[in-house]
Design a binder for these strands. Structure first.
Lengths: 336, 336
DNA sequence: CGAAAGTGTTGGAACGTTCCAACAAATCGT
DNA sequence: ACGATTTGTTGGAACGTTCCAACACTTTCG
């Protein structure tokens, strides 16, 4: 561990120039003579000089850093979104500060606070839990974009999400095209996204003249929730031939419920999930699903943020991305 | 968006005291009179003042921030480790800067560089890919701890990992206790962790007098790799009754290979994985596994780092944590 | 050939904090 | 009652950068 970290002054002294010139050179200005530049680079590497980001961001009044707060790292779909964000951010030469809310609004709030103290230039919220009031407060302070939660209500924030209603309709359309009629829905609980998916399901069923076949079973966005909902569906006296489950994780649970009853997927019953998490594609699961373009959502969120940073007065935008059907082995023709 | 962010001076002016006193008060010093404190708090909230972390860390020469670099966010076990790190870090009142290497040594290197520019006080490396040389360089600059890669070779770094040899032995012991003898191993490819697990497998087989039953099939730490390895194992003319697969993701692939052959788990063949990722516990998979205490590994890594920050001269430590057997539905008694 | 325009380079003033020595006022001990 | 301590408070100097106005020197050109 060397004594004290070398500063720009040390480099200047060693190279025999002024600190200002070193500053210029380090940032690759073209107003530096070739000789000076060479001497400076030489000195810098010799001292293994590393600019101090704190000092820089203080002087510059820009941190070149974006804050990303994610509801919960454990859900694999968030990880995929984050990857998208990071890629885009890197391209802009920015840096990312990533924190988790641990599914806890208090922690979430305080982490956001910390990010703001670090003078992040923008905030990406991935599936937050904050009350609208806090969001408004943030918005006054710092450009922000919200992912994966419909935020039509909140005026000032950019947001991006997939079209859950459309996606749900696609799931039903797919099952209908396979000849299914008694298509049940295992819901994702009481939250906006789940509601939209349920709504899409009902809409499409009705459009196909299957309104009388509509059947919703209460579930949740978890393995456990999917299992419960599917179990009730399967044990009912209605002979459902297909299940549209509110998300992929829940679909994994539903798969287990089917297996527990000695039934086969897709011969006895078809299953379609939602989200397109990589995991659902593993061969043991091979769940048909409505995929969100997760990485693209992350990337678009980041570029939206850069747009707003560039022009804080631009009107808030909402980007909707299209979900896409991925057919795997969990859905097949209706056999009754 | 308010005009300019209020600074400590603005607060001081509004409260009618000096900036020094505000600084004291904000950090909760007890040398501030009740009146002054009240006035300051009042002023601060009124202006919605937020201290500037860049300025603070410049003056303080401490960033109160730790850097965490993870190989790849997509692997769920890393997410669980990160959660552990974050929890511990939060308890110390520190902040975390999390970046990914995207499984790319170049990016990894440059991200670490950025973290160091931010004057992080320490670094947690979760499954890095850097050559030993870069690691040495880091070590000179900044306390660091390495997770989940045995680093006995590198003298100066603290590290923490589970005992892979022991874990592999536990897996075999478990299968033997269920009456299995022809226990094959699907490997994790050519890397240190995989080698250790393979070594533990061979050791335990030998100890149980089953040296002649040892059979290794080449796989990888992926779904695909597990599928391939298991497929070869199952198609061989040796009638294996159990498979120890190098990690959980690969075990998921192995499960698919078994299903493809119309065989049943665990009646026809037992499977044990390694890692203890939450996912393996989903009811559709229910894979018996050797679990690493992932969150604890993260937490211990962080506290190790705090120890070293507190005393940079302390000798480097290696902490080994014990893996634990979790029996689920993928392993059962031998029926032949 | 002298003014104008360009080329490199420089010192000093920011940026928003924390730390420190200094100090005034109140309280103490003898 | 008077120096010694304690209790609050203060201005100014760091911290390591970037920015800016000002500088010498060349070069250009009418």
């Amino acid at each position: 561990m060397a004594a004290n970290r070398p500063t720009i002054k040390d480099v200047a002294a060693l190279a025999g120039v002024s600190k200002s010139l070193v500053s210029l050179a380090m940032r690759g200005s073209d107003r530096v003579s070739a000789e000076s530049r060479a001497a400076i680079i030489e000195a810098a590497t010799q001292l293994s000089y590393r600019p101090n980001a704190a000092a820089r961001s203080l002087a510059d009044r820009r941190s070149h850093t974006l804050g990303v707060i994610v509801l919960d790292l454990l859900n694999p779909i968030y990880a995929e979104i984050i990857d998208g964000v990071q890629g885009e951010v890197r391209q802009h030469g920015y840096h990312t500060m990533l924190v988790t809310g641990n599914d806890n609004p208090i922690i979430e709030q305080s982490e956001v606070e910390k990010l703001l103290e670090f003078q992040v230039e923008g905030l990406v919220l991935i599936g937050h839990r904050m009350p609208a009031g806090s969001l408004d407060a943030i918005e006054g302070d710092c450009p922000a974009v919200v992912i994966s939660r419909a935020e039509r209500g909140i005026a000032g924030l950019d947001s991006i999400s997939n079209d859950d209603v459309l996606g749900a309709r696609m799931a039903v359309d797919h099952l209908v095209s396979l000849g299914h009629q008694s298509i049940a829905h295992v819901t994702g609980g009481i939250n906006e996204v789940a509601m939209l998916r349920k709504f899409g399901y009902e809409q499409s069923m009705t459009d196909h003249g299957l309104a009388d076949q509509i059947a919703c079973y209460e579930g949740a966005f978890t393995d456990e929730g999917g299992y419960r909902g599917a179990a009730v569906a399967l044990d009912s006296n209605r002979r459902h031939t297909a299940l549209f489950v509110a998300n992929d994780i829940a679909a994994v649970g539903a798969l287990a419920a089917v297996a527990d009853r000695g039934l086969n997927v897709p011969t006895d019953i078809s299953i379609v999930g939602y989200d397109g998490m990589a995991l659902a594609g593993l061969r043991s699961l091979s769940i048909s699903t409505i995929a969100q373009p997760l990485a693209r959502i992350g990337a678009e969120a980041a570029s939206l943020l850069f747009l707003r940073i560039g022009d804080p007065t631009r009107p808030p935008a909402h980007i909707g991305v299209e979900p896409r059907l991925i057919v795997r082995n969990s859905s097949g023709p209706c056999h009754t």
